[in-house]
Simulated assay, not measured.
Amino acid sequence: MSASQEIQAHVGRRAVVAAGATGLAAVLTACGGGAKESGGSDTVEPAGEGDGANGTPLARTADIPEGGGMVFAEEGVVVTQPKAGEFKAFSSKCTHQGCAVKGIADGVITCPCHNSTFDAATGAVTGGPATQPLPEKQILVEGDSITLA
């Protein structure tokens, strides 16, 4: 191989590595939170002042879809509305390996890491590999406001 061909081959490998890193960054960005999930769930990223702790509003009741819910990443909580006007809250940390649950639809909370599923009304495991329910969290629903207790 000539010196010119070696330089072209070396530059070609750099371009592939750079393109691969750029593609990976795009994929990771696309996987970030804050986007509406299909089937009635949201993942809410930290919003600054209103962190839901100490009586600060976490969400409005109208924000939590019936049969679905929302994950509040910073607070580590998932809030669901299994039936009209009934709100529940659980740890958003899957009991299998600690991944954050993400999808909430049709009364089921799903962990994206290994597809464990949990009942949105009770936190009970409905499909493994998780074997323990999601721990319940205390919330207060006053008027149209939901706060962490």
Rank of each mutant, 00 (worst) to 15 (best):
M1P: 07
S2C: 03
S2K: 10
A3Q: 15
A3V: 12
S4F: 03
S4V: 03
Q8P: 00
H10K: 00
V11W: 08
R13G: 00
R14A: 05
R14F: 07
A15P: 00
V16A: 04
V16C: 01
A18T: 03
A19C: 04
G20E: 07
A21E: 00
A21S: 00
T22K: 01
G23N: 02
L24W: 10
L24A: 13
A26D: 01
V27M: 01
V27I: 13
T29E: 13
T29L: 15
G32K: 05
G32V: 01
G33K: 01
A35M: 06
K36C: 02
S41Y: 05
T43D: 00
T43W: 06
P46H: 00
A47K: 04
E49S: 13
G52L: 02
A53L: 10
A53M: 03
A53D: 04
N54H: 08
N54F: 05
N54C: 00
N54G: 07
G55I: 11
G55E: 13
P57N: 05
L58M: 03
A59M: 05
A59K: 02
R60D: 03
T61N: 03
D63P: 00
D63V: 01
I64C: 12
I64F: 10
P65W: 08
P65N: 13
P65F: 09
G67I: 15
M70G: 01
M70C: 08
V71N: 06
V71R: 12
A73W: 00
E74P: 03
E75T: 03
E75S: 09
G76S: 04
G76R: 01
V77P: 00
T80F: 11
T80H: 13
Q81G: 11
P82G: 07
P82C: 11
P82T: 11
P82F: 11
K83N: 15
K83H: 15
G85H: 13
K88R: 14
A89T: 10
A89L: 09
A89M: 11
F90A: 08
S92Q: 05
S92K: 08
S92G: 07
K93E: 14
C94Q: 09
T95P: 12
T95S: 15
H96M: 12
G98M: 04
G98L: 12
C99G: 13
A100I: 08
V101Y: 07
V101E: 09
I104N: 14
A105M: 14
D106K: 14
G107K: 08
G107H: 09
V108M: 09
V108G: 06
T110N: 11
C111D: 12
C111V: 13
P112S: 15
C113Q: 02
C113S: 03
C113V: 03
H114R: 05
S116M: 08
T117S: 03
T117E: 12
F118W: 01
D119R: 06
T122F: 12
G123E: 07
G123K: 09
G123R: 08
V125W: 01
T126P: 01
G127T: 03
G127F: 05
G128Q: 02
G128S: 04
P129D: 11
P129E: 09
A130C: 06
T131L: 06
Q132H: 10
Q132D: 15
K137I: 06
K137D: 10
K137H: 14
Q138T: 15
Q138H: 14
L140T: 10
G143R: 03
S145R: 10
I146P: 06
